[in-house]
Structure formats: structure tokens, C-alpha cells
Computed example of a mutant assay.
Amino acid sequence: MTVYVVATREKTKDADAFAKYGPAAAAAGAGHPITPLAFYGKIDVLEGAPIEGAVILSFPDEAAARAWYESPAYQAAREHRLKGADYRFFMIAGVDEPPAG
């Protein structure tokens, strides 16, 4: 079942530290079956607190998502993200079939 990793950047804390995250995270994706569905595009927050950015990544299954997230390369990139910005980062399972009705 398809799994999505969703990340929302709530607030940048250290722009210099955060600048190191993007290139490191991109390199960490090499060899992993990641399909970006949304990547820091235009945001229109309909409810809740404003966010600075959002990403939605698709993986073929939970094991693939965890293999990427837990990889040494992404964990090293993650350190820059944690120093540079406040994020909400979560994984959600897709649906096999849309609900009826």
C-alpha cells in the first residue's frame, strides 16, 4: 500500500543551518523509490496556523518510507533540519480504494 511522508515547515529558526538541509536531503534520496507529489509550492492555509512550506512524498510502502527516513544519509540531513526549522513530519498510509459514496 502506498505511504506518504508529509512535512510542514512551521518556522525557520536558523537560515544558515537550514540551507544545508536541502542539498543533504536531496542526496539522501538517491536509491530510494521516492515520488515527490508536492514540494514547497504555493500554499493557501484554509484552517489553522500559517506554515512556511510543505512537502508530500510518495513511497510504494511503509518499509520503503522507513528505509529512506532511517537511512544514515537522511538522518545526517535531518540534523540540519532540526537545527534550522520547526517541522511537523509524519507518515500516512494511502487507501487501496477510495471510500464508497
Score class of each variant (00 low, 15 high):
10 E>Y: 06
101 G>T: 04
93 A>T: 05
97 E>F: 02
53 G>C: 04
27 A>G: 11
26 A>E: 15
11 K>N: 03
32 H>F: 15
82 L>H: 03
73 A>Y: 00
86 D>P: 04
94 G>Q: 09
70 E>D: 14
67 A>C: 03
52 E>I: 00
62 E>R: 15
63 A>G: 02
64 A>N: 06
57 L>N: 05
63 A>M: 06
79 E>N: 02
72 P>T: 14
96 D>M: 03
99 P>L: 14
75 Q>D: 03
48 G>Y: 03
67 A>W: 04
31 G>R: 11
29 G>C: 14
51 I>Q: 02
61 D>G: 10
18 F>Q: 06
35 T>M: 07
81 R>I: 07
9 R>N: 03
45 V>T: 13
53 G>I: 05
18 F>D: 12
5 V>P: 01
21 Y>A: 04
93 A>D: 15
101 G>K: 00
94 G>T: 07
95 V>C: 10
43 I>R: 00
64 A>D: 07
50 P>A: 04
10 E>F: 03
63 A>V: 14
58 S>T: 07
89 F>E: 06
29 G>H: 11
79 E>P: 05
35 T>G: 02
61 D>Y: 09
92 I>D: 00
52 E>V: 04
57 L>H: 10
2 T>Q: 11
60 P>R: 10
7 A>G: 12
3 V>E: 04
84 G>W: 04
71 S>I: 00
74 Y>F: 07
44 D>N: 13
56 I>R: 08
77 A>M: 08
59 F>E: 02
49 A>S: 09
72 P>M: 06
43 I>H: 13
21 Y>S: 15
85 A>N: 08
